[in-house]
Amino acid sequence: MMPKITTNRRKWKADLMNRVQTVDDNDRPATDYTFKRVTYFKPLGVTAQEKALSVQEKAEVVKRINIVMDHTINTKDFGIRIGEQLYNIERIWTDDEKREMELSLSYVD
């Protein structure tokens, strides 16, 4: 009997959010997030090298996730919501052969 092979380990749900620049009541620029779609992810650990790089860039990476490949996602226009916590996307690494991408996330200020 052949052992079962798990082909999809992405079992956690996150919301992909569009980042929209708006103006608040006092005419100051404000960032708002609107829901785009649900995506499934697999949590990954944050490496020491990535921690060091993120400190240099003034944004501390607190979480890394693996999602299915989506070429429309970029660091400027999108964010991720996991539960009630919003995250900015700091870095995107893609693996075209496996059709997946890793996102490095930091807390929204």
Rank of each mutant, 00 (worst) to 15 (best):
K11V: 10
E60I: 12
R10V: 04
V20E: 14
N88E: 05
K36L: 13
A52P: 01
A52S: 14
P3N: 09
I80K: 01
R37E: 15
N18K: 12
K42Q: 15
V108T: 12
T6I: 13
K13C: 04
P29R: 09
T22S: 13
M69N: 14
S104Q: 08
F41N: 01
Q56T: 07
D96T: 04
R10F: 08
T6K: 07
W12Q: 14
Y40F: 15
T75C: 05
K51Y: 11
D96L: 06
L103P: 01
H71W: 06
V20W: 03
D96H: 04
S104M: 04
R19Q: 14
N74I: 02
N26G: 01
M17R: 06
I89Q: 00
A48N: 15
L103G: 00
K98W: 02
S54W: 05
S106P: 06
L44P: 03
I89V: 02
I92M: 09
V23G: 02
Y40I: 09
E60A: 10
K4F: 10
R19G: 01
R64I: 09
G83Q: 10
M101H: 04
Y107F: 11
V38E: 15
Q56N: 09
I89L: 03
I73Q: 03
N74T: 14
W12Y: 15
E97M: 04
K51C: 11
N66P: 00
K58I: 06
E84F: 03
M101R: 03
F78N: 15
V20K: 12
V61D: 00
K11S: 03
V108E: 12
R99N: 07
T34M: 13
R91N: 08
K11T: 14
R64F: 02
L103M: 04
M2T: 05
L44Y: 11
M101G: 03
T34L: 13
M1A: 04
D25G: 15
N74G: 05
T47F: 11
E90K: 03
P43T: 11
T72M: 07
P43C: 07
K63R: 15
R99C: 04
R19E: 09
R81Q: 15
T39G: 01
K4H: 10
F78M: 07
N18P: 00
K98M: 06
N26I: 08
Y107K: 13
N88Y: 04
D32F: 07
Q85R: 14
T7Q: 07
R64G: 01
D95I: 02
S104C: 05
R28D: 12
M17C: 05
N88H: 07
R37G: 03
Q85S: 08
E84H: 05
R37I: 10
K4N: 10
Q85L: 09
L103E: 00
Q56A: 08
T34G: 03
Y87Q: 06
T94P: 00
V46H: 14
F41W: 11
T34D: 14
V61G: 01
D70A: 12
D15M: 05
N8M: 02
R37T: 15
K13Q: 13
L53I: 06
V20S: 08
L103N: 00
N88I: 01
L44I: 05
F78Q: 07
I65K: 00
G83C: 11
R28Q: 14
D95H: 06
Q85A: 10
T6L: 05
K13H: 03
